[in-house]
Design a binder for these strands. Structure first.
Lengths: 221, 221
DNA sequence: CTCATTCGAGAGCACTGCTCTCCTTCGCAA
DNA sequence: TTGCGAAGGAGAGCAGTGCTCTCGAATGAG
């Protein structure tokens, strides 16, 4: 039942965006609005459920796509697969992407469930960094910082992150990884939110190009 | 009069976000809601006016901050100034930033006024690229692509862009410039939309670090 | 058979964007 | 001074919203 409500709500989300009407959802199900409140305490509760689902959906897409790369030593291919998975899911589910990576709803606090799902996705990228670092494949074509040192406070922040999910990974490597991470979502948002209109038409080629640049920046062989 | 309405609306925007109430704005001005319609045809019209103002405000901030860099040959400093101007304005006006660079309102088409203001901001960055290219300062520390060639379709898109605002600028240079551009807004959005929470605390240092990495990627001396 | 639980229906409240009509006020021309 | 038209705010009203409350029908366990 709550699954059916979420399905209908997702369809409305694709049309109306974040301001979806609880009453309209109820109408589509042949029910009256108050009946929805048997299953969701409020409209924000429904949105929260959709947000958690969306985080997990993108994590599923990224995990399965990355796992499908046969050559585990092809680090650039794995990064590209991660990027394409995020972009592909976002293009297929623009409203849900906007819900989780767009401007946050004012006065709305994301529940902790979302952060663990967001962490799931990030972990896939971090694993590529770990594999590259272990194999010594990171310093090959682009030298890691040293001439452009990481600020001490940032180094401390990243060391704390590494302690949690990637023990032993140097902060400098993680720093470049976060840049690729941020750029990935920046590129997808830019495209999806219309900032590329009348500028770039070859969207897919352009995205792949950006991902390759990020692979260079990270230092993936 | 319309200026006063916009001022009050901006204050409400900072609190309620994009779903601002026209009636509440009217109440704050001691008027009844229908009076607002003498000045704005609809709520979307008011939002559009605020959006155009926001685009121009960030363009003003970027232009003046970048122009204040005394050493015009300090291309890295100029890029950093541009980035800091965008981030500073966004942190000072988060709701307006979200309005123009966050998820677009569904069923809302941005008026052409917005694109010219958006172009204003981009032009400042492109001028840095032009100056660097003219001075031959771009290939210094990081070689421009060649090993990682620009896809042909992307090259065509970028050549068309260059023809419009930067005649003679090689598409390969512009390509890296757009990456810095996208990353700038990606980084600001990531920070502003809460994706950095519990990960990076040294926000300013981290942002500057990213901008320096982008300067390296563009090849600024 | 009884009774408690589940769950949808309906009314109602306060709010929203928006439209319509009414009425006051003001500036300008005769 | 008088008349008139434009400007602009007030108010009522419509359709829609989130949400709460109460009521009644079904359902399943004892």
């Amino acid at each position: 039942m709550i699954a059916e409500i979420k399905d209908v709500a997702r369809r409305h989300l694709a049309i109306d965006g974040a301001n979806l009407s609880l009453r309209a959802v109820a109408r589509d199900m042949g029910m009256v609005s108050s009946a929805i409140y048997r299953y969701f305490a409020s409209r924000d509760d429904l949105l929260t459920a959709l947000i958690v689902d969306a985080y997990n959906a993108v994590a599923d897409a990224v995990e399965s796509t990355e796992a499908a790369v046969a050559d585990r030593g092809d680090l650039r291919g794995r990064l590209l697969a991660i990027g394409r998975a995020v972009r592909g899911w976002a293009l297929a589910n623009p409203a849900e992407y906007a819900l989780i990576y767009g401007s946050p709803v004012p006065g709305y606090a994301a529940p902790p469930d979302t952060t663990v799902a967001a962490l799931r996705t990030a972990t896939v990228l971090v694993q590529v960094l770990i594999d590259g670092h272990r194999g010594g494949a990171l310093h090959s074509d682009v030298p890691l910082p040293g001439d452009d040192p990481l600020p001490g406070a940032v180094r401390d922040d990243l060391r704390a992150v590494a302690d949690g999910i990637a023990p032993g990974l140097p902060p400098a490597v993680l720093a470049r990884g976060t840049i690729a991470w941020i750029h990935l979502f920046g590129a997808v948002s830019f495209e999806l939110f219309g900032q590329l209109n009348n500028v770039i038409e070859a969207r897919e080629d352009y995205f792949d190009y950006q991902m390759r640049q990020m692979a260079d920046l990270v230092g993936l062989a």
